[in-house]
């Protein structure tokens, strides 16, 4: 049986390195992806994700097992990324540029070559649009659609009112829609 996050946290607090390793492995990809979406640099994203896990471990005792670990952890990661962005000016580069540098993409399910081509084109357009969004909008989009957090959890992570998160999500999607339409994804008349 797969141990829950709360159980792994309990074991890690008791000194189990294996438990924390499992927890890190469980959220490593999510953490790196979220950081990469915000800082646009794979190496820095990995360092920030690592820093977040180290910081989370130091504060593991403050985690409330009644809440989702991901929401608590993303709050830590958010703080690490914000600290980094305050220290440095982060350039806006599409994530596709990371893959051009040899960064491996996702393991794709088998699909037709046409579908795969279309997915890549859409991913490229969406990635470019996302990188042009305001950082606040980009973060709520990533937390909602990449990490699957609820509006309430995002509000907890970003320390914003739920209404503000809903507004950010709505406006961010509208801006993305406008950018994708401008990039040639405008819906055709039925």
């Amino acid at each position: 049986m797969t141990p829950s996050d709360a159980e792994l946290v309990r074991q890690a607090l008791a000194g189990s390195q294996a438990a924390y390793r499992t927890l890190v492995a469980r959220y490593a990809a999510a953490a790196v992806n979220m950081a990469a979406r915000l800082v646009h640099d794979r190496a820095v994203a990995e360092e920030l994700a690592q820093d977040a896990f180290v910081r989370a471990f130091a504060r593991l005792a403050t985690y409330d097992p009644d809440r989702r670990f991901s929401a608590w952890f993303f709050r830590v990661l958010h703080n690490v990324v914000v600290d980094y962005m305050r220290r440095r000016r982060v350039e806006t580069v599409s994530l596709d540029a990371l893959q051009a540098e040899g960064y491996p993409g996702p393991a794709e399910a088998a699909s037709s070559p046409e579908d795969e081509l279309e997915r890549r084109a859409l991913g490229s357009a969406l990635g470019a649009a996302l990188s042009r969004l305001r950082a606040e909008y980009r973060e709520v989009i990533v937390l909602r659609y990449q990490q699957g957090l609820t509006v309430e959890e995002i509000a907890g992570v970003l320390k914003l009112p739920e209404g503000t998160v809903k507004t950010f999500l709505h406006r961010a999607r509208k801006e993305l829609a406008a950018m994708l339409e401008a990039a040639g994804w405008k819906p055709r008349d039925r």
Binding site: Q17, A25, V32, A36, E46, L95, G105, P106, G127
Partner: peptide, 18 residues
């Protein structure tokens, strides 16, 4: 949103982090 490419951390990431 699932069309976006996702990144995989390097193989040593977990061990290094722990």
């Amino acid at each position: 949103f699932t069309a976006l490419p996702t990144l995989q951390p390097s193989p040593a990431f977990v061990a290094r982090t722990v």
